[in-house]
Lab assay of single mutants.
Amino acid sequence: LRLEVKLGQGCFGEVWMGTWNGTTRVAIKTLKPGTMSPEAFLQEAQVMKKLRHEKLVQLYAVVSEEPIYIVTEYMSKGSLLDFLKGETGKYLRLPQLVDMAAQIASGMAYVERMNYVHRDLRAANILVGENLVCKVADFGLARLIEDNEYTARQGAKFPIKWTAPEAALYGRFTIKSDVWSFGILLTELTTKGRVPYPGMVNREVLDQVERGYRMPCPPECPESLHDLMCQCWRKEPEERPTFEYLQAFL
């Protein structure tokens, strides 16, 4: 395994491009020591290896001592969030954005069929390849993070704006909380990567959403798509659509 080009840095580690087995181009995620327990990670990795779908980033291998390494397929255009905010983002029109959403829903419909939960679905965790191919990455890892700023769910590192209220408040993460996050991801797509709930801080978002506030229809977004977002944001988790439905609708 060779680490060649550093692609990015996040709160919990770095991402590199490299070569595996001398020939395969891969992405390598390294986790800061202390982010998660190697034992817990190894268990999760076994499950992650079983998830194989064309719209999920394929896991190739893991190094399960500290520092933990995760070796996955390489996606040339990086994260969907950076892609939307970058040069190419300007030229993306609604049909392409909807197609990308459908690809993500397709990957998540598979996660749904496998009775698995992602827990951290957002544009930053979707990767883009050639020809606007989108794949879901980092599934299941969020559960293992041991950082206090994260586990408190009120901490600075927790993605509260993407998280369903029952998950943020009571830790009830299910495929239905993933559906909520998918609704937020749809706003990221239609606004080219704007942060959700602009002008609001995490605490406010939690309070307002509890009181029934939902983001309005983004500019140039059809009402039918906003309606779909609002279905994803129904207060009762069981009233939210399935990913199978979302995939078919898109």
Rank of each mutant, 00 (worst) to 15 (best):
S106G: 10
A102S: 10
M48Q: 03
F173L: 04
V117D: 00
T242E: 14
C232P: 02
A164K: 01
R52M: 12
R122D: 01
F158E: 03
N125L: 00
E149M: 09
S177V: 04
G155N: 07
G18M: 09
K29Q: 02
L31S: 10
V57S: 12
V5G: 15
L132C: 07
V47G: 02
P218W: 06
L228A: 08
N115D: 05
L42T: 03
V133G: 13
G140V: 02
N115L: 11
I126R: 01
A152C: 07
S76I: 13
L169A: 09
E239Y: 14
V128C: 07
D207V: 13
L84N: 04
R143Y: 02
K49V: 03
V15K: 00
G199C: 15
V71K: 00
E44N: 02
V71M: 06
V5T: 15
G78Y: 04
R203A: 09
V15C: 05
V57Y: 10
L42N: 04
P67I: 04
K77L: 11
P222D: 03
W162Q: 02
H118G: 00
P241K: 08
E54I: 11
E65Y: 14
P38K: 11
W180Q: 02
S181T: 07
T174Q: 14
E130P: 14
Q231M: 11
V136F: 00
V195D: 08
V57M: 07
L56T: 15
T88K: 11
M75A: 15
F249N: 06
V136H: 02
W162R: 02
K77I: 12
T30Y: 15
W16L: 15
Y60C: 11
E239C: 14
F139S: 01
P95I: 06
C232D: 05
V117P: 01
R194F: 08
D82K: 06
H118T: 01
Q154E: 12
R52Y: 09
V111I: 08
S76R: 15
G86L: 09
I28S: 13
L246G: 06
E210T: 09
G78D: 06
W233E: 10
T187R: 07
E239W: 15
Q46I: 05
G183K: 04
P196W: 03
Q46F: 08
A156K: 04
M215Y: 03
C217L: 12
F41L: 03
K157N: 05
S37W: 06
P237C: 11
T151E: 06
G171R: 08
R153H: 11
M108G: 14
M114S: 05
Y213H: 06
K32Y: 03
F182T: 03
R2S: 08
A109D: 15
E66L: 15
L246V: 08
P67Q: 04
N202T: 05
E210S: 11
R240T: 01
F243G: 04
K85G: 10
Y245R: 15
L250E: 03
D82P: 04
I160D: 01
M100T: 09
V57P: 05
F173H: 04
E236N: 13
P216N: 09
W16M: 15
A109S: 13
T23L: 13
T19W: 12
L185V: 08
A61N: 09
L80F: 10
L185I: 05
Q208Y: 14
L94H: 05
G140F: 01
L141E: 02
L185Y: 08
L94R: 08
A164P: 15
P95E: 06
E87Y: 12
N125Y: 01
A137D: 03
K176V: 09
D138K: 03
E244M: 14
N125V: 01
L42S: 03
G22M: 10
I184Y: 09
G212T: 04
D120G: 02
W16Y: 15
P165A: 11
M229E: 12
P38A: 13
T163G: 01
R240D: 03
L80W: 08
K235C: 15
M200R: 08
L80T: 11
R214N: 10
K235H: 11
K157Y: 02
G10M: 01
E236P: 11
Y150G: 01
M17E: 10
V5S: 15
A124K: 03
L56A: 14
Q58A: 09
A61P: 02
M200Q: 08
S64H: 13
S76P: 12
C221L: 11
K49H: 03
V47H: 07
H226L: 05
R203H: 13
Q231F: 14
E239R: 14
K157M: 12
G13P: 02
L92I: 13
V128M: 04
Q247V: 11
K29L: 01
A164W: 01
A105K: 00
W233Y: 06
G8N: 04
Q247S: 10
E44S: 02
R214G: 03
R143V: 04
N21E: 14
A124D: 15
L1F: 04
S106F: 14
R143H: 00
V5D: 14
E39P: 07
R234C: 11
F182Q: 02
Q231S: 10
L169G: 09
E87P: 13
T151L: 14
F182M: 09
L225K: 04
F12Y: 03
